[in-house]
């Protein structure tokens, strides 16, 4: 099962990054994504397909000092 932001996610594998982001309610313009330790460039969101073995981090900006 794909692991996304520390959680096992059942419905992610087989989808592109962009499909997953849209379905899960993320704003693709406001995030950065790391898959198995490597950054996925924004231009590849439509092409990269999530697999069962992937560990994915979806990050965005929050307030900080």
């Amino acid at each position: 099962m794909a692991k996304i932001n520390g959680e096992e996610v059942t419905n992610a594998a087989g989808k592109t990054i962009m499909e997953y982001l849209t379905e899960a309610g993320y704003d693709s313009r406001r995030v950065a994504i790391e898959r198995n330790g490597s950054i996925i460039p924004k231009k590849s969101y439509e092409e990269v397909i999530i697999t069962e073995a992937d560990t994915i981090e979806i990050v965005s900006f929050v307030g900080g000092g």
Binding site: N5, G6, A24, G25, Y26, E57, V59, S60, F61
Partner: peptide, 12 residues
């Protein structure tokens, strides 16, 4: 302005 980076929340 400074910002921090954290795991993103979906929606809301």
């Amino acid at each position: 302005i400074t910002l921090a980076l954290r795991r993103a929340n979906s929606e809301g």
